[in-house]
Design a protein around this nucleic acid. Structure first.
Lengths: 222, 222
DNA sequence: GTCTATAACGGGATAGAC
DNA sequence: GTCTATCCCGTTATAGAC
Protein backbone atom coordinates (compact mmCIF):
# COMPACT_ATOMS: atom_id res chain seq x y z
CA UNK A 1 0.00 0.00 0.00
CA UNK A 2 2.92 2.33 0.62
CA UNK A 3 4.56 1.77 -2.71
CA UNK A 4 1.91 2.37 -5.30
CA UNK A 5 2.50 4.46 -8.33
CA UNK A 6 2.74 8.18 -7.72
CA UNK A 7 0.03 8.84 -10.24
CA UNK A 8 -2.34 6.48 -8.53
CA UNK A 9 -1.55 7.80 -5.09
CA UNK A 10 -2.46 11.26 -6.30
CA UNK A 11 -5.74 10.02 -7.73
CA UNK A 12 -6.68 8.19 -4.54
CA UNK A 13 -5.84 11.07 -2.28
CA UNK A 14 -7.50 13.64 -4.51
CA UNK A 15 -10.62 11.52 -4.60
CA UNK A 16 -10.86 11.46 -0.83
CA UNK A 17 -10.26 15.15 -0.43
CA UNK A 18 -12.62 16.15 -3.23
CA UNK A 19 -15.34 14.03 -1.71
CA UNK A 20 -14.80 15.54 1.71
CA UNK A 21 -14.15 19.18 0.92
CA UNK A 22 -15.40 19.70 -2.61
CA UNK A 23 -13.41 20.65 -5.66
CA UNK A 24 -12.99 24.30 -4.81
CA UNK A 25 -12.27 23.48 -1.21
CA UNK A 26 -9.36 21.18 -2.03
CA UNK A 27 -5.97 22.63 -2.93
CA UNK A 28 -3.30 20.81 -4.86
CA UNK A 29 -1.03 21.41 -1.90
CA UNK A 30 -3.30 19.52 0.45
CA UNK A 31 -3.48 16.65 -2.01
CA UNK A 32 0.24 16.35 -2.53
CA UNK A 33 0.83 16.81 1.18
CA UNK A 34 -1.48 13.96 2.17
CA UNK A 35 -0.17 11.78 -0.64
CA UNK A 36 3.45 12.44 0.36
CA UNK A 37 4.13 13.48 -3.17
CA UNK A 38 5.70 16.56 -4.60
CA UNK A 39 3.51 19.42 -5.70
CA UNK A 40 4.98 19.45 -9.19
CA UNK A 41 4.06 15.80 -9.69
CA UNK A 42 0.45 16.78 -10.22
CA UNK A 43 1.37 19.01 -13.12
CA UNK A 44 3.72 16.44 -14.53
CA UNK A 45 1.15 13.65 -14.52
CA UNK A 46 -2.03 15.56 -15.21
CA UNK A 47 -1.15 19.03 -16.44
CA UNK A 48 -3.54 21.05 -14.32
CA UNK A 49 -5.97 20.85 -11.46
CA UNK A 50 -8.88 20.85 -13.88
CA UNK A 51 -7.44 17.85 -15.70
CA UNK A 52 -6.87 16.07 -12.40
CA UNK A 53 -10.51 16.56 -11.50
CA UNK A 54 -11.59 15.08 -14.80
CA UNK A 55 -9.31 12.10 -14.30
CA UNK A 56 -10.63 11.47 -10.80
CA UNK A 57 -14.18 11.58 -12.04
CA UNK A 58 -13.65 9.47 -15.12
CA UNK A 59 -12.00 6.68 -13.15
CA UNK A 60 -15.16 6.21 -11.08
CA UNK A 61 -17.97 7.20 -13.38
CA UNK A 62 -17.11 4.83 -16.19
CA UNK A 63 -17.32 1.55 -14.27
CA UNK A 64 -20.50 2.69 -12.55
CA UNK A 65 -22.14 3.46 -15.85
CA UNK A 66 -20.96 0.20 -17.36
CA UNK A 67 -22.51 -1.65 -14.45
CA UNK A 68 -25.73 0.28 -14.88
CA UNK A 69 -25.98 -0.71 -18.51
CA UNK A 70 -25.13 -4.32 -17.73
CA UNK A 71 -27.85 -4.49 -15.10
CA UNK A 72 -30.32 -2.92 -17.49
CA UNK A 73 -29.39 -5.41 -20.18
CA UNK A 74 -29.87 -8.21 -17.69
CA UNK A 75 -33.33 -7.18 -16.61
CA UNK A 76 -34.40 -6.49 -20.16
CA UNK A 77 -33.10 -9.90 -21.19
CA UNK A 78 -35.05 -11.57 -18.40
CA UNK A 79 -38.35 -10.66 -20.07
CA UNK A 80 -37.62 -10.24 -23.78
CA UNK A 81 -41.25 -9.92 -24.80
CA UNK A 82 -42.45 -7.40 -22.21
CA UNK A 83 -41.01 -4.29 -20.61
CA UNK A 84 -39.39 -4.90 -17.23
CA UNK A 85 -41.18 -3.35 -14.25
CA UNK A 86 -40.16 0.15 -13.22
CA UNK A 87 -38.75 -1.16 -9.97
CA UNK A 88 -36.17 -3.26 -11.78
CA UNK A 89 -35.17 -0.42 -14.07
CA UNK A 90 -34.74 1.87 -11.11
CA UNK A 91 -32.72 -0.67 -9.20
CA UNK A 92 -30.44 -1.13 -12.19
CA UNK A 93 -29.90 2.60 -12.28
CA UNK A 94 -29.53 3.26 -8.57
CA UNK A 95 -27.69 0.30 -7.16
CA UNK A 96 -24.31 0.77 -8.85
CA UNK A 97 -23.91 4.28 -7.55
CA UNK A 98 -25.35 3.68 -4.12
CA UNK A 99 -23.47 0.63 -3.11
CA UNK A 100 -20.49 1.85 -5.07
CA UNK A 101 -17.31 -0.06 -4.40
CA UNK A 102 -18.18 -1.45 -1.05
CA UNK A 103 -15.13 -3.62 -1.31
CA UNK A 104 -13.24 -3.81 1.97
CA UNK A 105 -10.08 -2.09 0.80
CA UNK A 106 -11.52 1.31 -0.06
CA UNK A 107 -13.16 4.07 1.92
CA UNK A 108 -16.75 3.13 1.29
CA UNK A 109 -18.97 6.18 1.42
CA UNK A 110 -16.44 8.62 0.07
CA UNK A 111 -16.73 7.75 -3.59
CA UNK A 112 -20.48 7.71 -3.30
CA UNK A 113 -20.19 11.14 -1.83
CA UNK A 114 -17.96 12.29 -4.64
CA UNK A 115 -20.32 11.13 -7.35
CA UNK A 116 -23.22 12.75 -5.58
CA UNK A 117 -21.29 15.98 -5.55
CA UNK A 118 -20.73 15.81 -9.27
CA UNK A 119 -24.37 15.18 -10.03
CA UNK A 120 -25.47 17.89 -7.67
CA UNK A 121 -23.00 20.52 -8.72
CA UNK A 122 -24.83 23.32 -10.47
CA UNK A 123 -21.55 24.65 -11.74
CA UNK A 124 -21.62 25.02 -15.51
CA UNK A 125 -18.45 23.02 -16.07
CA UNK A 126 -19.65 20.14 -13.94
CA UNK A 127 -23.04 20.13 -15.56
CA UNK A 128 -21.44 19.87 -18.98
CA UNK A 129 -19.19 17.08 -17.76
CA UNK A 130 -22.16 15.26 -16.32
CA UNK A 131 -24.21 15.51 -19.46
CA UNK A 132 -21.25 14.30 -21.49
CA UNK A 133 -20.56 11.34 -19.19
CA UNK A 134 -24.17 10.34 -18.69
CA UNK A 135 -25.23 10.69 -22.28
CA UNK A 136 -25.64 7.06 -23.21
CA UNK A 137 -26.82 5.92 -19.81
CA UNK A 138 -29.44 8.63 -19.79
CA UNK A 139 -30.71 7.70 -23.22
CA UNK A 140 -30.92 3.99 -22.48
CA UNK A 141 -32.70 4.40 -19.18
CA UNK A 142 -35.11 7.04 -20.43
CA UNK A 143 -36.03 4.78 -23.28
CA UNK A 144 -36.57 1.83 -20.93
CA UNK A 145 -38.71 3.95 -18.66
CA UNK A 146 -40.74 5.25 -21.56
CA UNK A 147 -41.51 1.69 -22.61
CA UNK A 148 -42.46 0.73 -19.09
CA UNK A 149 -44.63 3.81 -18.61
CA UNK A 150 -46.58 4.47 -21.79
CA UNK A 151 -49.01 6.74 -19.97
CA UNK A 152 -46.34 9.46 -19.60
CA UNK A 153 -45.47 12.08 -22.17
CA UNK A 154 -41.90 13.09 -22.80
CA UNK A 155 -41.89 16.20 -20.57
CA UNK A 156 -43.51 14.34 -17.67
CA UNK A 157 -40.94 11.59 -17.95
CA UNK A 158 -38.14 14.14 -18.03
CA UNK A 159 -39.38 15.90 -14.91
CA UNK A 160 -39.60 12.60 -13.09
CA UNK A 161 -36.16 11.53 -14.15
CA UNK A 162 -34.85 14.84 -12.87
CA UNK A 163 -36.55 14.24 -9.51
CA UNK A 164 -34.99 10.79 -9.44
CA UNK A 165 -31.53 12.21 -9.96
CA UNK A 166 -32.16 14.72 -7.20
CA UNK A 167 -33.36 12.18 -4.69
CA UNK A 168 -30.49 9.86 -5.55
CA UNK A 169 -27.80 12.53 -5.38
CA UNK A 170 -29.21 13.87 -2.15
CA UNK A 171 -29.11 10.42 -0.64
CA UNK A 172 -25.57 9.92 -1.81
CA UNK A 173 -24.20 13.13 -0.35
CA UNK A 174 -26.16 13.32 2.84
CA UNK A 175 -24.19 13.37 6.02
CA UNK A 176 -26.44 14.54 8.83
CA UNK A 177 -29.82 15.45 7.45
CA UNK A 178 -31.38 12.01 7.53
CA UNK A 179 -30.22 11.42 11.05
CA UNK A 180 -31.67 14.75 12.06
CA UNK A 181 -34.99 14.28 10.30
CA UNK A 182 -35.48 10.77 11.54
CA UNK A 183 -34.39 11.49 15.08
CA UNK A 184 -31.78 8.79 14.67
CA UNK A 185 -34.22 6.06 13.65
CA UNK A 186 -32.98 5.81 10.04
CA UNK A 187 -29.44 4.82 9.14
CA UNK A 188 -27.94 6.69 6.18
CA UNK A 189 -25.15 4.12 5.88
CA UNK A 190 -27.52 1.23 5.24
CA UNK A 191 -27.22 0.95 1.49
CA UNK A 192 -29.82 -1.73 0.97
CA UNK A 193 -32.36 0.17 3.03
CA UNK A 194 -31.66 3.34 1.09
CA UNK A 195 -32.02 1.50 -2.19
CA UNK A 196 -35.34 -0.07 -1.29
CA UNK A 197 -36.69 3.16 0.14
CA UNK A 198 -35.74 4.95 -3.05
CA UNK A 199 -37.18 2.29 -5.33
CA UNK A 200 -40.50 2.09 -3.51
CA UNK A 201 -40.87 5.85 -3.43
CA UNK A 202 -39.75 6.58 -6.98
CA UNK A 203 -41.62 3.72 -8.62
CA UNK A 204 -44.89 4.94 -7.14
CA UNK A 205 -44.06 8.44 -8.31
CA UNK A 206 -43.40 7.27 -11.85
CA UNK A 207 -46.62 5.29 -11.95
CA UNK A 208 -48.74 8.24 -10.86
CA UNK A 209 -50.91 10.00 -13.40
CA UNK A 210 -49.36 13.01 -15.01
CA UNK A 211 -50.61 16.32 -13.64
CA UNK A 212 -53.43 17.92 -15.64
CA UNK A 213 -51.19 20.51 -17.26
CA UNK A 214 -53.10 20.15 -20.53
CA UNK A 215 -56.04 22.04 -19.04
CA UNK A 216 -55.61 25.70 -19.94
CA UNK A 217 -56.17 27.24 -16.49
CA UNK A 218 -55.09 24.75 -13.80
CA UNK A 219 -58.08 23.78 -11.73
CA UNK A 220 -58.24 23.24 -8.01
CA UNK A 221 -55.59 24.57 -5.64
CA UNK A 222 -55.36 27.98 -4.00
CA UNK B 1 -32.22 52.10 -7.91
CA UNK B 2 -28.82 53.76 -8.15
CA UNK B 3 -28.91 55.25 -4.74
CA UNK B 4 -29.82 52.50 -2.38
CA UNK B 5 -28.02 51.94 0.84
CA UNK B 6 -24.51 50.55 0.51
CA UNK B 7 -25.35 47.70 2.80
CA UNK B 8 -28.34 46.70 0.74
CA UNK B 9 -26.48 47.02 -2.53
CA UNK B 10 -23.89 44.62 -1.19
CA UNK B 11 -26.56 42.15 -0.14
CA UNK B 12 -28.30 42.27 -3.52
CA UNK B 13 -25.13 41.89 -5.52
CA UNK B 14 -23.77 39.15 -3.30
CA UNK B 15 -27.03 37.27 -3.64
CA UNK B 16 -26.83 37.30 -7.40
CA UNK B 17 -23.21 36.25 -7.52
CA UNK B 18 -23.60 33.54 -4.89
CA UNK B 19 -26.52 32.12 -6.80
CA UNK B 20 -24.60 32.15 -10.06
CA UNK B 21 -21.13 31.08 -8.98
CA UNK B 22 -21.55 29.51 -5.58
CA UNK B 23 -20.14 30.71 -2.28
CA UNK B 24 -16.59 29.54 -2.84
CA UNK B 25 -16.65 30.79 -6.39
CA UNK B 26 -17.55 34.33 -5.45
CA UNK B 27 -14.91 36.69 -4.14
CA UNK B 28 -15.57 39.80 -2.14
CA UNK B 29 -13.80 41.70 -4.87
CA UNK B 30 -16.28 40.63 -7.49
CA UNK B 31 -19.13 41.61 -5.20
CA UNK B 32 -17.80 45.04 -4.37
CA UNK B 33 -16.81 45.56 -7.98
CA UNK B 34 -20.27 44.82 -9.36
CA UNK B 35 -21.91 46.78 -6.59
CA UNK B 36 -19.67 49.81 -7.20
CA UNK B 37 -18.75 49.75 -3.56
CA UNK B 38 -15.42 49.71 -1.87
CA UNK B 39 -13.93 46.43 -0.78
CA UNK B 40 -13.60 47.53 2.80
CA UNK B 41 -17.31 48.29 3.04
CA UNK B 42 -18.07 44.59 3.30
CA UNK B 43 -15.97 44.28 6.39
CA UNK B 44 -17.37 47.44 7.84
CA UNK B 45 -20.99 46.35 7.42
CA UNK B 46 -20.71 42.61 7.95
CA UNK B 47 -17.32 41.84 9.45
CA UNK B 48 -16.34 38.91 7.25
CA UNK B 49 -17.30 36.98 4.17
CA UNK B 50 -18.79 34.23 6.33
CA UNK B 51 -21.04 36.74 8.08
CA UNK B 52 -22.09 38.20 4.75
CA UNK B 53 -23.12 34.77 3.56
CA UNK B 54 -25.22 34.26 6.66
CA UNK B 55 -26.87 37.64 6.17
CA UNK B 56 -27.68 36.95 2.54
CA UNK B 57 -29.23 33.62 3.44
CA UNK B 58 -31.18 34.83 6.42
CA UNK B 59 -32.81 37.63 4.45
CA UNK B 60 -34.35 35.12 2.04
CA UNK B 61 -34.90 32.00 4.10
CA UNK B 62 -36.94 33.60 6.84
CA UNK B 63 -39.79 34.95 4.69
CA UNK B 64 -39.95 31.70 2.74
CA UNK B 65 -40.28 29.68 5.89
CA UNK B 66 -42.87 32.06 7.31
CA UNK B 67 -44.89 31.64 4.15
CA UNK B 68 -44.56 27.89 4.36
CA UNK B 69 -45.93 27.85 7.88
CA UNK B 70 -48.76 30.24 6.96
CA UNK B 71 -49.79 28.02 4.05
CA UNK B 72 -49.66 24.97 6.27
CA UNK B 73 -51.79 26.71 8.88
CA UNK B 74 -54.26 27.65 6.17
CA UNK B 75 -54.69 24.16 4.80
CA UNK B 76 -54.88 22.66 8.27
CA UNK B 77 -57.51 25.24 9.20
CA UNK B 78 -59.55 24.38 6.12
CA UNK B 79 -60.29 20.92 7.48
CA UNK B 80 -60.02 21.15 11.27
CA UNK B 81 -61.35 17.68 11.93
CA UNK B 82 -59.34 15.70 9.38
CA UNK B 83 -55.77 15.76 8.15
CA UNK B 84 -55.28 17.69 4.91
CA UNK B 85 -54.32 15.61 1.88
CA UNK B 86 -50.64 15.06 1.18
CA UNK B 87 -50.89 17.12 -1.98
CA UNK B 88 -51.87 20.23 -0.05
CA UNK B 89 -49.13 19.76 2.53
CA UNK B 90 -46.57 19.35 -0.22
CA UNK B 91 -47.81 22.38 -2.07
CA UNK B 92 -47.57 24.45 1.11
CA UNK B 93 -43.99 23.31 1.49
CA UNK B 94 -42.86 23.61 -2.10
CA UNK B 95 -44.61 26.61 -3.52
CA UNK B 96 -42.91 29.35 -1.46
CA UNK B 97 -39.45 28.29 -2.47
CA UNK B 98 -40.24 27.47 -6.08
CA UNK B 99 -42.07 30.55 -7.08
CA UNK B 100 -39.92 32.59 -4.75
CA UNK B 101 -40.26 36.30 -5.15
CA UNK B 102 -41.55 36.37 -8.67
CA UNK B 103 -42.27 40.03 -8.23
CA UNK B 104 -41.33 42.02 -11.30
CA UNK B 105 -38.51 44.01 -9.78
CA UNK B 106 -36.17 41.22 -8.81
CA UNK B 107 -34.18 38.69 -10.76
CA UNK B 108 -36.61 35.80 -10.57
CA UNK B 109 -34.80 32.52 -10.77
CA UNK B 110 -31.65 33.64 -9.04
CA UNK B 111 -32.91 33.50 -5.49
CA UNK B 112 -34.51 30.18 -6.14
CA UNK B 113 -31.16 29.05 -7.36
CA UNK B 114 -29.47 30.40 -4.26
CA UNK B 115 -31.78 28.57 -1.87
CA UNK B 116 -31.37 25.38 -3.83
CA UNK B 117 -27.64 25.75 -3.45
CA UNK B 118 -27.94 26.09 0.28
CA UNK B 119 -30.10 23.02 0.62
CA UNK B 120 -27.88 21.03 -1.67
CA UNK B 121 -24.57 22.06 -0.19
CA UNK B 122 -23.01 19.08 1.52
CA UNK B 123 -20.56 21.38 3.22
CA UNK B 124 -20.64 20.88 6.99
CA UNK B 125 -21.17 24.57 7.75
CA UNK B 126 -24.04 24.87 5.33
CA UNK B 127 -25.64 21.71 6.57
CA UNK B 128 -25.53 23.02 10.12
CA UNK B 129 -26.98 26.34 8.98
CA UNK B 130 -29.72 24.54 7.13
CA UNK B 131 -30.69 22.39 10.06
CA UNK B 132 -30.74 25.42 12.29
CA UNK B 133 -32.88 27.49 9.90
CA UNK B 134 -35.25 24.71 8.94
CA UNK B 135 -35.77 23.36 12.41
CA UNK B 136 -39.32 24.50 13.07
CA UNK B 137 -40.48 24.15 9.48
CA UNK B 138 -39.15 20.62 9.39
CA UNK B 139 -40.88 19.66 12.58
CA UNK B 140 -44.24 21.12 11.60
CA UNK B 141 -44.29 19.54 8.15
CA UNK B 142 -43.05 16.18 9.32
CA UNK B 143 -45.78 16.12 11.90
CA UNK B 144 -48.43 17.07 9.32
CA UNK B 145 -47.17 14.37 6.98
CA UNK B 146 -47.17 11.80 9.74
CA UNK B 147 -50.83 12.57 10.46
CA UNK B 148 -51.72 12.36 6.79
CA UNK B 149 -49.81 9.11 6.30
CA UNK B 150 -50.39 6.86 9.30
CA UNK B 151 -49.14 3.83 7.39
CA UNK B 152 -45.54 5.08 7.48
CA UNK B 153 -43.08 4.55 10.30
CA UNK B 154 -40.72 7.28 11.36
CA UNK B 155 -37.70 6.09 9.35
CA UNK B 156 -39.76 5.64 6.19
CA UNK B 157 -41.17 9.12 6.56
CA UNK B 158 -37.70 10.54 7.10
CA UNK B 159 -36.32 8.89 3.97
CA UNK B 160 -39.19 10.21 1.93
CA UNK B 161 -38.80 13.70 3.29
CA UNK B 162 -35.13 13.55 2.35
CA UNK B 163 -36.05 12.49 -1.19
CA UNK B 164 -38.50 15.38 -1.32
CA UNK B 165 -35.79 17.84 -0.35
CA UNK B 166 -33.51 16.38 -2.99
CA UNK B 167 -36.06 16.56 -5.77
CA UNK B 168 -37.01 20.08 -4.77
CA UNK B 169 -33.46 21.39 -4.49
CA UNK B 170 -32.51 19.74 -7.74
CA UNK B 171 -35.42 21.40 -9.47
CA UNK B 172 -34.52 24.74 -7.98
CA UNK B 173 -30.88 24.69 -9.07
CA UNK B 174 -31.21 23.04 -12.44
CA UNK B 175 -30.02 25.01 -15.42
CA UNK B 176 -29.61 22.66 -18.35
CA UNK B 177 -30.36 19.13 -17.25
CA UNK B 178 -34.11 19.21 -17.71
CA UNK B 179 -33.79 20.73 -21.15
CA UNK B 180 -31.28 18.05 -22.08
CA UNK B 181 -33.31 15.16 -20.68
CA UNK B 182 -36.56 16.31 -22.19
CA UNK B 183 -35.06 17.22 -25.53
CA UNK B 184 -36.42 20.70 -25.05
CA UNK B 185 -40.01 19.62 -24.45
CA UNK B 186 -40.09 20.61 -20.78
CA UNK B 187 -39.57 24.16 -19.59
CA UNK B 188 -37.56 24.51 -16.36
CA UNK B 189 -38.71 28.11 -15.96
CA UNK B 190 -42.37 27.20 -15.76
CA UNK B 191 -42.89 27.34 -12.02
CA UNK B 192 -46.47 26.13 -11.94
CA UNK B 193 -45.63 23.15 -14.13
CA UNK B 194 -42.67 22.29 -11.92
CA UNK B 195 -44.84 22.54 -8.82
CA UNK B 196 -47.57 20.28 -10.16
CA UNK B 197 -45.09 17.76 -11.51
CA UNK B 198 -43.39 17.65 -8.14
CA UNK B 199 -46.64 17.37 -6.19
CA UNK B 200 -48.03 14.58 -8.35
CA UNK B 201 -44.80 12.62 -8.23
CA UNK B 202 -44.04 13.08 -4.55
CA UNK B 203 -47.58 12.53 -3.31
CA UNK B 204 -47.71 9.15 -5.03
CA UNK B 205 -44.33 8.32 -3.54
CA UNK B 206 -45.47 9.17 -0.03
CA UNK B 207 -48.64 7.12 -0.40
CA UNK B 208 -46.76 4.02 -1.50
CA UNK B 209 -46.36 1.14 0.89
CA UNK B 210 -43.16 1.14 2.87
CA UNK B 211 -40.57 -1.33 1.58
CA UNK B 212 -40.53 -4.67 3.37
CA UNK B 213 -37.45 -3.89 5.37
CA UNK B 214 -38.93 -5.61 8.41
CA UNK B 215 -38.40 -8.99 6.78
CA UNK B 216 -35.00 -10.28 7.85
CA UNK B 217 -33.61 -11.23 4.42
CA UNK B 218 -35.14 -9.01 1.73
CA UNK B 219 -37.13 -11.15 -0.67
CA UNK B 220 -37.39 -10.74 -4.41
CA UNK B 221 -34.82 -8.77 -6.34
CA UNK B 222 -31.60 -10.01 -7.93
C1' DG C 1 -19.11 56.00 6.91
C1' DT C 2 -16.19 55.68 3.07
C1' DC C 3 -11.97 55.53 0.88
C1' DT C 4 -6.69 54.04 -0.34
C1' DA C 5 -3.09 51.25 0.54
C1' DT C 6 -1.13 47.36 2.08
C1' DA C 7 -0.47 43.47 4.94
C1' DA C 8 -0.45 38.46 5.18
C1' DC C 9 -1.49 34.54 3.07
C1' DG C 10 -2.54 30.58 -0.01
C1' DG C 11 -3.41 29.33 -4.45
C1' DG C 12 -1.87 27.22 -9.29
C1' DA C 13 1.72 26.97 -12.32
C1' DT C 14 6.59 26.53 -14.05
C1' DA C 15 11.73 26.60 -14.74
C1' DG C 16 15.55 24.06 -14.15
C1' DA C 17 18.71 21.06 -11.38
C1' DC C 18 19.17 16.29 -10.53
C1' DG D 1 10.28 11.07 -13.23
C1' DT D 2 11.05 13.61 -9.26
C1' DC D 3 12.64 17.35 -6.64
C1' DT D 4 13.47 22.60 -5.02
C1' DA D 5 12.67 27.11 -5.55
C1' DT D 6 10.17 30.69 -7.20
C1' DC D 7 6.88 33.40 -9.88
C1' DC D 8 2.70 35.65 -10.02
C1' DC D 9 -1.75 36.02 -9.10
C1' DG D 10 -6.10 36.61 -6.34
C1' DT D 11 -7.83 36.28 -1.89
C1' DT D 12 -9.46 38.07 2.90
C1' DA D 13 -8.61 41.27 6.19
C1' DT D 14 -6.99 45.58 8.36
C1' DA D 15 -4.74 50.09 9.34
C1' DG D 16 -5.25 54.70 8.88
C1' DA D 17 -6.29 59.00 6.10
C1' DC D 18 -10.31 61.68 4.94
Amino acid sequence: MTDRDTRERILDTAENLFATNGFDGTSLRSITGDAHVNLAAVHYHFGSKEALIRAVIARRVEPVNRERLALLDACEGASPDASPPVEDILRAFLRPSLRLLQSPDRGDALIRHLLGRIIISSDERMEALLIENFGEVGRRFLSALRDALPHLGRPDLAWRFLFTLGAMAFTMTDRNKLKFISGGTADPADVEAALEELVAFLAAGFRADAPHSASPHGGSAS
